[in-house]
Design a binder for these strands. Structure first.
Length: 446
DNA sequence: TGGGGTTAT
DNA sequence: ATAACCC
């Protein structure tokens, strides 16, 4: 179907892969910024955000003293007695502010992908193309870069990609200005031709600054990474496997024989990470939309009785039901995650069990939580007993409850898509729920 | 080493 | 259900 219009579709696809303009926006010490907005008296003091025994982030006053992220509370207090600590275990405020940022970016452009709570990718290719045409029509050839240019590279205004990236830098500036004016948050931006490069370049000037990467400096950026697992997409595990092969630097990975790498990691990952080592990344900016899952977790020194487990689960569930209620969609799957104590391999011994939520309970999710909470606790305790023999002694150090498989309510609420689809569509389609309707319309479209 | 998230297998 | 990745 698309191949019949080869001329048109080829130019679109070329722009999508070879000529994109991507912004990576990275908020400065996000949790600390949110806390400083909530309590302005913390503004000019060194501030750390604490979760259990860890200072997970800190503001720039604290960083000036030498504070690093993920320092233990003990170390932090002893090295920096002036440090103010606030508890950041409840993520509600951070999550809400995080989605305000994403929502604001979506006002500019629909292609916004979240990465954690404090980072967003925005594919601004279409906005750049519009501005470029406008500039060409007005006969204006002078465009001014906003922020830094990586490596201080000279801009060639006769190079179409340079011009696009310069326009991209102006848009990035506008995004950052909007986030600051409307939400009071500062952050860094990186502008480049793909997600990998935009992300890598965004951190070159911190805080509250931005940098654009021109193609000629790409190898400089990627080769200057000190460690192979600084490449986003190459994590702890594959970095270790690469080290076993004798690969330590990005250059090592670039030069390594593809065939050997493919046999070691599989063709798919081998090709993907070797392309990453050259700064190549054709992964699209995938709009995140609303969250795919909601979870709440709590960690602790020890939990060793069914009664304690039930108490913790009730707490987690209460917060989750509140969030689910505000979201409006209905979860169809529930999951329980535990971490058992073990002296060796202290982290990453998590197990989980999940099950469908009974349909009669799903219907009652919008109502008072009291009617759903105790049946859900019962389900979760059954899941717990699938993992733990409660007749024997046990030692749990983490509990997490998660809702997933979120679906829009099948009801015909006024103004919703479901309303129009069920009222207007053919008799054979009426009575199907929204998911089935989408399946039908996709089947017709293709 | 927290309290979250995502996608792939 | 787990494993990998991201923050």
């Amino acid at each position: 179907m698309y191949s019949k219009r080869a001329g048109h579709s080829k130019s679109v696809s070329a722009r999508n892969t070879a000529c994109r303009v991507i912004v990576h926006l990275d908020l400065d010490c996000f949790y600390a910024q949110v806390e400083m907005i909530r309590n302005p008296e913390l503004r000019d003091k060194p501030l750390g955000v604490q979760q259990k025994n860890l200072v997970v982030t800190c503001n720039y006053e604290a960083r000036k003293l030498g504070m690093k992220k993920l320092m233990s509370v003990r170390d932090a207090k002893e090295k920096f007695p002036q440090l103010t600590l606030v508890n950041g275990e409840d993520l509600t405020q951070y999550r809400e502010m995080s989605y305000k940022v994403t929502d604001l970016l979506e006002e500019f452009c629909p292609l916004v992908e979240r990465l954690g709570f404090d980072e967003n990718f925005v594919d601004i290719t279409e906005i750049v193309e519009k501005r470029l045409k406008r500039l060409q029509q007005s006969g204006c050839s002078r465009v001014c870069v906003s922020g830094h240019v990586y490596n201080n590279q000279a801009i060639n205004f006769h190079d179409p990609m340079h011009v696009r990236l310069v326009i991209g830098s102006q848009i990035a500036e506008e995004l950052r200005e909007a986030v600051h004016a409307r939400l009071g948050l500062t952050g860094c931006a990186g502008v480049a031709s793909n997600k990998l490069l935009a992300k890598l370049v965004s951190g070159t000037f911190k805080p509250n600054q931005q940098t654009v990467l021109l193609p000629e400096s790409c190898q400089d950026l990627i080769r200057n990474l000190e460690d192979i697992n600084k490449v986003p997409g190459i994590g702890y595990k594959t970095a270790k496997r690469l080290e076993t092969l004798g690969l330590k630097s990005v250059c090592d990975l670039q030069a390594f024989p593809s065939a050997v790498l493919e046999k070691e990691l599989g063709v798919s990952t081998a090709q993907r990470i070797q392309k990453l080592s050259y700064g190549e990344d054709d992964s699209p900016v995938t709009p995140s939309g609303p969250p795919q899952s909601f979870s709440e977790e709590d960690s602790f020194k020890k939990c060793s009785s069914e009664g304690q487990v039930k108490e913790k689960i009730e707490e987690l569930l209460a917060s989750l039901l509140d969030r689910i209620h505000k979201d409006g969609r209905k979860p169809h799957t529930i999951r329980l995650v535990i971490r058992q104590f073990s002296s060796t391999n202290k982290w990453f011994n998590r197990e989980s069990r999940q099950c469908p939520i009974p349909p009669h309970l799903i219907q009652k999710f919008g109502k008072e939580s009291s009617s759903v909470i105790s049946p859900l606790v019962d389900i979760l305790m059954k899941l717990f007993r699938k993992m733990i023999n409660v007749a024997l002694p046990f030692h749990i150090t983490l509990l997490s409850v998660s809702f997933s498989n979120l679906k829009d309510l099948p009801s015909s609420k006024k103004g919703s898509i479901g309303f129009y689809l069920t009222e207007v569509s053919s008799p054979s389609a009426s009575g199907k729920n929204v998911q089935e309707m989408e399946d039908v319309s996709q089947g017709q479209a293709s």
